[in-house]
Amino acid sequence: MGFGPFLLLALMEGLVTAAVLSLAAVGLSLVFGVMRVVNVAHGEFFMLGAVIAWFVAGLVPGPAWMAFLAALVLAPLVVGALAAAVDGLVLKRLNYDPEATIVATIGVMYMVQQAALSFYGPDARPVAAPFDWRFQLPWFGYSGYKLFVVAAAVAVLLAVWLGMTRTRAGLVMRATQVDRDVARAFGIDVERVYMGTFALGAGLAAMGAVLYVPISQAHYLMGHDPLLLSFIVVIIGGLGSLRGTLVAALVIGLSDGVISMFFSPTLAKILATLLVAMVLVFRPQGLFGAKA
């Protein structure tokens, strides 16, 4: 394959990676931004979304897109409700203490993983894409659904951005993010905001997983990588900055794609990881974070 087509493929793949990263990270960006808690179970919420998509695909008859739409609605609701319960039963009682939250969410991560293993099983299972379209370029073929994922990621990010900037709920969340004590003084029910944010973050992760699972597969350990990558994206982008999250996802996705053109795969991964780490070393507040 010539250099041109190779580069084109690397860029397309990088874009898809960036889309997947931003879908996984947008929920964490909200939770981390507003609540300042490290939610280790975030990846498990993502996994649950994929697993629910698989169950729904088996229950909804008819064409694949009907099951896909059903899962797109159902998975965020179920996972969001679960997250609200975790918030009310555990995190609230810990008063969102950063250290205690880490231990508690590690515990939640173990429980969710075991539940998925017991009720869903250890196998990796495919979920059909809502439509089956593949196009052939002169040098290689490509999945049309992957491009749809890119478009969906843009739509989700846009919706979250509009929600945060144009609605009352968004205003309340931003106020709480800036200073929870002041927010409380202005009569905002901070606890309800936190519960809503936590549920919303988990629901977004689940929705991202429903979009992602047709180009991957559902597996009970699949939450691990989205968790780490989401944290990386959120911190590189700068805490609480949606624009930062998007730019960081693009930086990581595209550098991963392009570097893999020049080196053997494992070496490319090492170099891409170090490169992204260096962004933080030389810009500790992240790309779009305010100076501390």
């Binding site: 515990g107 991560m109 173990y110 075991q114």
Partner: peptide, 10 residues
Amino acid sequence: WLFLVGLVLV
């Protein structure tokens, strides 16, 4: 057992 460990941690 993983569930039980998680529960005890919480």
